[in-house]
Design a protein around this nucleic acid. Structure first.
Length: 806
RNA sequence: GCGGACGUGGCGGAAUUGGUAGACGCGCCGGACUUAGAAUCCGGUUCUUCGGAGUGCGGGUUCAAGUCCCGCCGUCCGCACCA
């Protein structure tokens, strides 16, 4: 008897597939585009956690292949970024060199997965033939007025020495390195993503994405409906525009607050408050995001001026406080302490009057905290007695009529800070000319190549290392031919990944980013698999890019990713403190796929990656867990070896087992409950083996179908078994087996018999046993355990008998 | 603070969506084979005082609840003064 020699089998088939790909391109079959989020080619290589998503997407790809689709399942490298650059600073190695080495190593590891990747379709964001088009898209955005330069206080990471987009600085820390982000006033390139806010929000609805991700995006976009209202400043010509979502509370406004950055903050401050105000504004400007967020105690300084409430003429003191954000709404608010928690805190601290204007029952109460619920309007002149939800609509109408304000919409989403002060990124293809201003590099001169530099070190003054290369910086203006200087900032890491999925469709094209036909054939992506960490960043940017390319007629769809799947992480107990962490070098809990493949083979690792737990949840790596899979594959191997020459005609029971296996695997695979697919394999191959023992043989169809069903999961052993069964053509040229529902019908079923809902015995009866006789048999089986008067009898055919007795 | 998800044996996890809780696997226990071990195979494995009890805790709806409702407790995730 031959042994399951996985090393030999896997070597044999990986060579065979390299010679003759099982997924030929250019067919007229329907398409299926299954995409992995492409990795950053880190020098650390892959661990078994990285495999998880790649195995999942490959299983789906191979399943679709067997269902008759032509598959696009590509892989590439998101290779710009800081680790290679930091390594260059330390060692002097050019990032391009270390990146290439990392790619070579990771590619070797990725090949171990035995995914369907067609390396002819590979993309690399740092390849000039790729970033030419990254720059081209930027030029298009620039020409459409979507890219603009602006000086403003920005998130600055003191460790990366680089500005960060809002999305990269959540919780006030740098997304990449965890350093506390500070503010720095800098002139930077911005992308007008806010122009797309409504579309980015509305189009979420039609996507087959995890609800969690959709919610994170819609929260990030943060649309709110409200009103802008003008408060004249008493004794001046100035007006302060405030934004509020609670116009119904306008009668309760007892003070106003400007953000420290508000242009009027100092201007309307009276002489005796000036010094304190200057100090406060200065302190606020040096406060980090983290401090501003974690310390929620209210501080502020009175300007000495008053605003006039346009609705009732009330005089409201104007304060300056850092709890009001400069870049949201108008940077100024009207404050209603009775109905807003933050305003309540502030009013209590600075002893400002609190006027209740909404009440639960229409009566005024002693408020110990802000009342934020809807209710009945009080103390509100002509609006008294009205429901506050109605007043929310009526007050803005009234204000509009009187010319005091208007209804508006606001978003939390900010424009995208797009320039970075680092070396290893795409140069922004712009030229600054004294005569012509800022000019885009003509499209036929792209790409603007990244030049060689002497030092990769970032500077503290917010300048890119590129700024030091005079011969590169100094150029001629493409418009007037006069002297000009190149833009020295580079693009953020996200630029290439915002459109790379388009390039896979037609990666050798040097005329366009991809041809219309290729895009039409493959896009949009049918299934996109990757980690939840990109819920907002990459996925939001990619959607924005796609919508822009749609608007300029490059693509004919508005959403790039039809279905999204976020796989969970694989964790392992740390050797340091015994607690569960995601795999990382620093926690000492990394399991290398190289060693695992060496010990158990690729097929076992692939199946264990799926078996480890529900694919969308984090799972714990168990060093012994893979043994169970390895035993299973050995068992299958032995079974085929033993029975391949003992072929019998199918019987009702072999047909039942075969059809059951097909139905279970297919249904669970469709639902992507892949952990239960594997347990389904174990359960029903056991049934098949038991049958075969009993009948001393197996029918041919069962063996064949088992090989085909197994092939997306354990491609090598499936292919080998398929050959052993006497077939010449690859198993991947076969059709996914279909099951016959009628073969799954059983005549007798085991039914639980309950007394008062507690199971006492089980009986075997006909599937469609009539109620009368089912109850009769149930009572018989219960015998004298059934006591008291029968109150009710329930019979669910095929399921349960329940007798209620008192 | 606000929002969301989750809580099932020693462990990872199943449960046809209200119908026999613990599938499948790990681990463990026993047996076979073996000089012995490894591997393999077979059997057992929620607890139990053998009456029963049991899906974080307490209530509720129902003939029937892991599943639905209400209230707690705990864990994880997202957002974080967005007016």
């Amino acid at each position: 008897m031959s042994k399951y020699n996985f090393k030999e089998i896997e070597k044999k088939w990986s060579q065979r597939w390299a010679e003759e790909p099982v997924n030929p391109s250019g067919t007229d079959k329907p398409k299926y585009y299954c995409l992995d989020m492409f990795p950053y080619p880190s020098g650390n290589g892959l661990h078994v956690g990285h495999w998880r998503g790649y195995v999942l997407s490959d299983v789906v790809s191979r399943y679709k292949l067997l269902q008759g689709y032509e598959i696009l399942h590509p892989m590439g490298w998101d290779a710009f970024g800081l680790p290679a650059e930091n390594y260059a600073i330390k060692t002097g190695t050019h990032p391009a060199v270390s990146t290439e080495e990392s790619i070579k190593n990771i590619k070797r590891q990725v090949n171990d997965i035995a995914a369907l990747y067609d390396w002819d379709k590979e993309v690399n964001t740092t390849d000039p033939s790729f970033y030419k088009w990254t720059q081209w898209i930027f030029v298009k955005m620039f020409k459409e007025g979507l890219a603009y330069e602006k000086e403003m206080p920005l998130n600055w990471c003191p460790s990366c020495k680089c500005v960060l987009a809002n999305e990269e600085a959540t919780n006030g820390v740098c997304d990449r390195c965890g350093s506390v982000v500070t503010k720095k006033n800098l002139r930077q390139w911005m992308l007008r993503i806010t122009k797309y806010a409504d579309r980015l929000l509305n189009d979420l609805e039609g996507l087959d994405w995890p609800e969690k991700v959709k919610k994170m995006q819609s929260d990030w976009i943060g649309k709110s409906y409200g009103a802008e209202i003008d408060f004249p400043v008493e004794g001046t010509e100035e007006k302060i525009k405030v934004y509020t979502t609670r116009p119904d509370t306008l009668y309760g406004a007892t003070f106003m607050v400007l953000s420290p950055e508000h242009p009027l903050a100092l201007k309307i401050t009276t002489a005796d408050n000036k010094e304190a105000m200057e100090q406060y504004i200065f302190d606020a400007s040096t406060k980090s995001n983290v401090d501003r967020m974690t310390d929620k105690s209210k501080t502020g300084v009175f300007t000495g001026s008053y605003g006039i409430n346009p609705l009732n003429g009330a005089k409201t003191p104007i304060w300056v406080s850092d709890y009001v954000l400069a870049d949201y709404g108008t940077g100024a608010i009207m404050c209603v302490p009775a109905h807003d928690e933050r305003d309540f805190d502030f009013a209590k601290k600075f002893d400002i009057p609190i006027i209740q204007v909404i009440s639960k029952d229409g009566k005024e109460q002693e408020l110990t905290e802000a009342y934020t619920q809807p209710g009945i309007m009080i103390n509100s002149g002509e609006f008294n007695g009205m429901n506050s939800e109605e007043a929310k609509k009526k007050v803005p109408d009234y204000m509009e009529e009187k010319g005091f304000g208007k209804k508006t919409v606001n978003f939390k989403l900010r424009d995208w800070v797009f320039s970075r002060q680092r070396y290893w990124g795409e140069p922004i293809p712009l030229v600054h000319c004294e005569k012509c201003g800022t000019v885009a590099v003509p499209e036929d001169q792209l790409p603007v190549l990244l030049p060689e530099v002497e030092s990769y070190k970032p500077t503290d003054n917010g300048e890119s290392p590129l700024a030091a290369i005079d011969e590169w910086v100094n150029t001629t203006c493409p418009e007037c031919g006069g002297p000009a200087k190149r833009e020295t900032n580079t693009m953020p890491q996200w630029a290439g990944s915002s459109w790379y999925f388009l390039r896979y469709c037609d990666n050798h094209n040097d005329k366009e980013l991809a041809s219309k036909e290729a895009l039409k054939k493959w896009m949009p992506v049918d299934l996109y698999v990757g980690g939840i960490e990109h819920a907002v960043l990459h996925l939001l940017y990619a959607r924005f890019y796609t919508k822009f390319l749609y608007d300029i007629g490059v693509v004919d769809f508005e959403e790039p990713f039809t279905r999204l799947f976020n796989q969970g992480m694989i964790c392992k107990k740390s050797s340091k403190d015994g607690k569960l962490y995601k795999m990382s070098k620093s926690m000492g809990n990394v399991v290398s796929p190289d060693e695992t493949v060496d010990a158990y083979g690729c097929d076992s690792l692939r199946m264990y990656e799926l078996f480890i737990g529900p694919p969308e949840l984090d799972s714990e790596w168990d060093d012994n867990g893979i043994d169970g899979i390895f035993r299973y594959l050995n068992k299958v191997w032995k079974f085929v070896d033993e029975y391949k020459d003992k072929i019998i005609e199918p019987t009702a029971e072999t047909e039942f087992a075969r059809n059951k296996l097909i139905s279970v695997i297919t249904q669970r695979l469709e639902a992507l409950t892949l952990n239960t697919v594997i347990s389904g394999f174990m359960e029903y191959t056991n049934a098949i083996i038991a049958n075969s023992k009993k009948l001393n043989g197996v029918d041919k169809k069962t063996l064949d179908d088992l090989a085909v069903l197994l092939s997306p999961f354990a491609p090598h052993i499936a292919e080998e078994i398929w050959e052993v069964l006497g077939h010449n053509e690859s198993v991947f040229k076969q059709k996914w087996p279909e099951y016959d529902e009628s073969k799954l019908v059983v005549n007798t079923v085991k039914v639980a018999v309950q007394i008062n809902g507690k199971v006492k015995v089980t009986i075997e009866i006909a599937k469609d046993e009539p109620k009368e006789s089912a109850l009769e048999k149930a009572k018989q089986a219960l015998g004298d355990r059934l006591k008291g008067d029968i109150v009710k009898e329930i019979y669910v055919p095929g399921r349960i008998v329940n007798i209620v007795a008192k």
